[in-house]
């Protein structure tokens, strides 16, 4: 399977990655190889096999509705690129309103 430059551009845009022409060409080739490798699985006969939803055969892992201690605000904010002591600060969100 061969990915086009357009496919790569779309995936990059969705992942907010900025790629140049060379990157795109390189990734198109590499990602195509990865897809080809995964395509080996298509040879497996899956007729009558239930789709697998999860790699672990486990269900119903719960927690009770009990409050646990939250992080102190300073710790919650500490890795943020920008903050005002109370909030995470991000570049102005532009709504059309």
């Amino acid at each position: 399977m061969s990915l086009s430059a357009k496919d790569v551009e779309k995936v990059a845009r969705l992942a907010r990655l900025r790629l140049n022409e060379t990157d795109i060409e390189q990734y198109a080739a590499q990602l195509s190889q990865i897809l080809d490798y995964a395509a080996i699985l298509e040879a497996v006969e899956t007729e009558g096999v239930e789709p697998m939803v999860h790699a672990i055969e486990l269900a119903n892992v719960w927690r009770e509705d009990e409050i646990l201690t939250s992080l102190p605000r300073q710790q919650a904010l500490q890795n943020s690129p920008a903050q005002d002591g109370k909030h995470f600060v991000v570049p102005q969100i532009l709504d059309a309103s």
Binding site: W62, R63, D65, S70, A76, N79, F88
Partner: peptide, 25 residues
Amino acid sequence: APNTQTCPTCLGLPGALPVLNKKAF
């Protein structure tokens, strides 16, 4: 009191794992 009710899970910090609240379900 903004940002006083958060933890690694709801902040999306690496390595934190979500566990479903039974009551919510």
